[in-house]
Amino acid sequence: MEYISAKLSDYEFDRISGLVYSLCGISLGSGKKELVTARLAKRLNELKLQSYDAYLKYLSGDESGYELLQLIDVITTNVTSFFREMHHFDYIRERILPEYRIKSEKIRVWSAGCSSGEEPYSMAVLLFEEIGNLMLRDVKILATDISTNILTKAKEGVYDKQLVNGVPKMLLNKYFDAFTDRDEYGRTLYNFKVKSDIRSVVRFARLNLMEDWPMKGPFKIIFCRNVMIYFDKKTQEKLVGKYHALLETGGHLFIGHSENLSSISHSFKYVQPGVYLKC
């Protein structure tokens, strides 16, 4: 087995970043060349290709489109954790959910850019905790991501013990099944699988945010956290407008702590950092 240490030329980088931008709106600056090189190396190795030029040829020859998905999968950054940015969940618990403990109104939540599923599962756990058994209620969480690999992982709902560090022990016991497994070298892995009740309210689907959205809405809550930072302003503005259209009046949009809608034009009302309200 030989390791491929092909060099990515500027031309090839431009081709790939242009392709990625046109496919999913992710904007790869010249500072991302190393990242792209490193991430695409996996593909080259897997395909036993000697150069990026050959990879591009392979890509253009792949009619199934599978390799495009793989390209998107390796390029997208999937970093998330359970109850990431806890203050958002606090806000939902304190300001949004109380009235739905009594009201049996339907609840629709969308986690746009759900990555490996921690965000929608966190939301489902919160809903179970706050309004009881969701089986008796019309509650659904839509979780979408562009990466099929990460969606497969998310659907499994299996997380390493390190990954569930953010989940309070009580909730971990209540909503996760612990089990052990062995890795390819036969080592023991301590894993946690999300319980089926939780998994049943979360519906996963692949969605490229740049394409048409088949959803009709309206959603009560939309998460799109640390997703839009990979897009340029123009794309961000378009997305925020579409989120606004899909939210019900009084619905909330949650964006990442590093994001801000102040430099784009939108119709939301600012509530607190990362929290926006559709009036």
């Binding site: 046109s22 496919l23 009619e63 489109g65 495009l68 998905l69 629709r108 969308w110 659904k140 839509l142 979408t144 099929t148 519906r203 996963f204 689907a205 692949r206 969605l207 490229n208 740049m210 394409e211 959205w213 088949p214 959803m215 009709k216 809405g217 959603f219």
Partner: peptide, 20 residues
Amino acid sequence: EADPKKVIPFEDDTNVLHEF
């Protein structure tokens, strides 16, 4: 530059999205 929808023919994904 294949049509992304063609590229990604996940039928059940579309069904899920239509639920919402």
